[in-house]
Structure formats: structure tokens, C-alpha cells
Design a protein around this nucleic acid. Structure first.
Lengths: 149, 149
DNA sequence: GTACGACCTACAGTAACTATAGGTTCAAGG
DNA sequence: CCTTGAACCTATAGTTACTGTAGGTCGTAC
């Protein structure tokens, strides 16, 4: 109700972040402890909104929480050189590129598998066959770091 | 030493799978319990190699263990229609497509961020700026399901 | 017979949350 | 003023797919 004073639910709505996630970020020290009401409820101000927006946006771009912590640390010092930031971003770009390559390999393999499935009995199913025997693959690129689901 | 009798280490080497992972698959019922020596060590035969190869290859193609369990179940019955298999594969393809799209959005955003970083002080760093404020983004596509790292 | 690598079990830890249980607070309506 | 119900609180367990550790046993080559 007070201007500039948001409940955890308000903050979540403003940033598209679940309430539990906000509490989790506080717990791991990514978000600072906010002030509390006499009844022990968290109240946030605009600086919190900004910081959480930064975290969420970085997450959406694929940065890990470790990387985000680094970014937040360096961004807290405006006089510091942004070399580190640039490095983290470039690392992230490389990682994204690797993932795209690996996913493209998966994609062609899956498409080929599906295209070839002609039989209607498991016995003559090409999908099962290809999955059983890597040597039937056209691509070997998907031997890289497994995608985490 | 006996033909067709592999230690867990041999099986791991043949399939590119860590020993602990094999034991984990056994624990969750994805791999059958193998025979044991009098000294309680596991011994595997070629059917185990085949099954584990299937699992690993499917993992490399991005299938979840739940999906792999389904694939293994249906593939155990050669008379069954392979509709289910086809469905699982198509689902996986869709998922892979979604991820590629989202990663491509990240990629352009990261590239743009890095390109624009001219200043050498954090205060004028565009990367931090863009990460802080989603509205500076060209793409909004990365608001989808977050990529799990 | 002994050394040593490979094996064994059981359990804890990882990332990044998500969900649940059981209880308290806040704000609006009567 | 009192009640109601949504939103809040803490603490803890669960999720996925493994990976790592501790402390002990087995197998085999020399």
C-alpha cells in the first residue's frame, strides 16, 4: 500500500518470478535481505525490482547463477573495467553456440529417424533400430556434453 | 576373462558410460540386475551392452529417462505397433526445435550486447545495461521456459 | 603372498528450483 | 471490532540425472 513498498508477491508479479524463487535467491545470497514489517513479512523497494529483473533476464539468456553472481559483483563497482563482464558474455555466447550445434545434430537425426519409420510393428521400426545402434547414425556430433533436461 | 563376461568397468568402456551411472541405472530399474561372481562383483553379457548403448544413445539425442523407459518398454514387444515410439520421437523433435529457437534468440542478443560494449568502465557498459533492462532487448523470445543448465 | 587397481555399498552433493506442511499476518467486508 | 480468506512465513523434502566420497573387499599379476 505504501508507495515504493512491495510485498514479495508484488515483486514476483513485476518480474515474472515465483515467490519461492525469490526466497531461494535471498537464501543463497543473490538477493539482499529486505526490510520486514512488524509481522515479519518482507517489503521490497525499487532497487530490489531492478536487481531481480537483472537476475531473471540473465537467467533467460542462459547465464548460470554463478555467472550472474559475478556479473552482479562487478556491476556494483562502476569504476571497474568491464573486461570481466565482456569475458563472461563471450563465454556464454560460446556455450550457446555449442548447444545450438549439438541440438541441430539431434534435430537432423530425429527427423531422419521419423522419416524412415515405415513399418507399423516394433520389429521393423527404424527409430528403435537407430537408437540401438549409434553406427546407423549420420551424425556423431551428439557425443558431446549431454543436454541436461 | 571368460568370453561374453564383462566387468562393470568393461561395460562402461564399451558404451562410454561411467561406472556409477551404470549402477544408478540399475538402481532405478532401467538396467536389469546382472549376475554376480562369488565375490559379489557384477558380470555383464552382450544383451546388457546393447541395452546400455540404447540408453546412452537416446540420452545423447536428448530423450529423458522417462521417455527412454517408455521406449524400452514398447521395444520389448516386437509385435506391438510402433505408434508410441513415433509419438515420443516427434515430441522430442518438437522440444529440440523449441530449444534451438530459444538459443538462437539468446545468441543474437548476446552478440548484440558484446558488439555494443565500447566503454571500458562498468558505468558505461552496455552489457550490464541490457541485462538490467529487458526493454533494451531486440527479442522477447527468451521469455519461454528457461533453459536448464 | 602381496600389492594394487577395480570393484562393492551407502550416502551426500550438484543446479536451480518447486512443492508441501503447518502455521501467522494483513486488509477488506460486515 | 471481528471475522474471513488470501497471501505471507519457515522448514524441509522432492525433482532430474547424475557425480563424488568414504570405507571396505575382490581379483589378478608378479
Amino acid at each position: 500500500m505504501m508507495a515504493d513498498s512491495l510485498t514479495i508477491g508484488d515483486l514476483g508479479r513485476k518480474t515474472g518470478c515465483k515467490v519461492q524463487t525469490i526466497r531461494y535467491y535471498e537464501q543463497i545470497g543473490l538477493m539482499p535481505e529486505p526490510s520486514r514489517t512488524s509481522g515479519n513479512q518482507r517489503r521490497y523497494d525499487p532497487t530490489h525490482v531492478e536487481r531481480l529483473a537483472f537476475i531473471r533476464h540473465s537467467r533467460e539468456l542462459g547465464f548460470s547463477l554463478v555467472a550472474i553472481r559475478q556479473l552482479l559483483n562487478v556491476s556494483d563497482d562502476p569504476e571497474r573495467s568491464c573486461e570481466t563482464v565482456d569475458l563472461i558474455a563471450r563465454d556464454q555466447l560460446q556455450e550457446v553456440d555449442r548447444r545450438i550445434k549439438s541440438l541441430n545434430a539431434m534435430k537432423s537425426e530425429l527427423e531422419r529417424m521419423i522419416r524412415q519409420c515405415r513399418g507399423d510393428k516394433i520389429a521393423e521400426c527404424r527409430i528403435i533400430e537407430v537408437l540401438s545402434d549409434h553406427s546407423l547414425c549420420l551424425t556423431n556430433d551428439h557425443t558431446g556434453p549431454a543436454v541436461r533436461n
